Amino acid sequence: MVSRGLYVYAYIAPSIQNCYVRFTVPKDGKDQTSTGFWSNDHLEVESGNIGGWFDYTGRFDFAVFHNGNQIAYEYNDINSRSGNLEGGSMTSIRNTRCIRNDGLIITYGFYDAGSGVAGFANKDQC
């Protein structure tokens, strides 16, 4: 089984109530609910969790919820074998715009990591 790792980070201001960030990959996910400090976690896009014998591409996404309503959603389709991005809304930094919704400002970024050469990270980061 091959996989592509991701590190996910979130910060929710202490003054924001009833808000959380959900990060998901096929058959796994993490909710970040803590306020006032950076939280981090690790996920894997694993080929064994993607349907089909020769399908290696799985969706990583995140959504922001406030007062029970989804107010932001972004995603990338990631090939678990090659680590390449196959499409999505965060494939280029110029696509990662600031989102204003429900009185909140949401900023985000996505780092498409390589293989870890020369000390660079070998896991994607959001």
Rank of each mutant, 00 (worst) to 15 (best):
W53L: 11
A113F: 01
N84T: 13
S115C: 07
S15Y: 15
S47K: 04
V25G: 04
N49H: 05
N67D: 05
G29Y: 01
A72C: 13
Y111E: 07
Y73W: 07
T107A: 02
G87C: 13
Q32V: 00
L6G: 10
E46F: 04
I71N: 06
G68A: 11
D61L: 03
G119C: 00
R81C: 14
G51L: 10
S89A: 02
H42W: 07
L6R: 13
E44K: 05
C98A: 06
P14W: 15
T91L: 04
T96F: 09
V21M: 13
N49W: 03
G114F: 03
N69C: 01
E44F: 04
E74L: 11
G5K: 15
C126H: 00
H66W: 08
G58A: 12
L43I: 03
I16C: 10
N69Y: 04
R4F: 12
N18S: 11
S3F: 13
K30T: 08
N40G: 06
R4G: 15
W53I: 10
N49F: 02
S39A: 09
R100C: 10
R59I: 05
V117Q: 03
N122A: 01
I12D: 15
D28A: 12
V2C: 14
D112N: 07
I16L: 15
E86Y: 13
G48E: 10
G119E: 05
K27V: 14
H66G: 09
L85H: 01
V21D: 14
N79T: 08
G5I: 08
T96Y: 09
Y9P: 14
G48S: 09
I50Q: 07
T57N: 11
Y108D: 00
S92L: 13
Y20T: 06
V45H: 05
T96E: 10
A118K: 05
I71K: 03
V64F: 03
G58K: 11
E44H: 05
Q32F: 09
C98N: 02
S89E: 10
V21Q: 09
A118T: 04
A63V: 09
F65P: 06
S47Y: 00
Y11M: 13
R22F: 09
I99T: 06
Y111C: 11
N40A: 07
F37I: 10
N95Q: 07
E74H: 13
G103C: 02
H42A: 09
N79E: 08
G116S: 02
L43M: 06
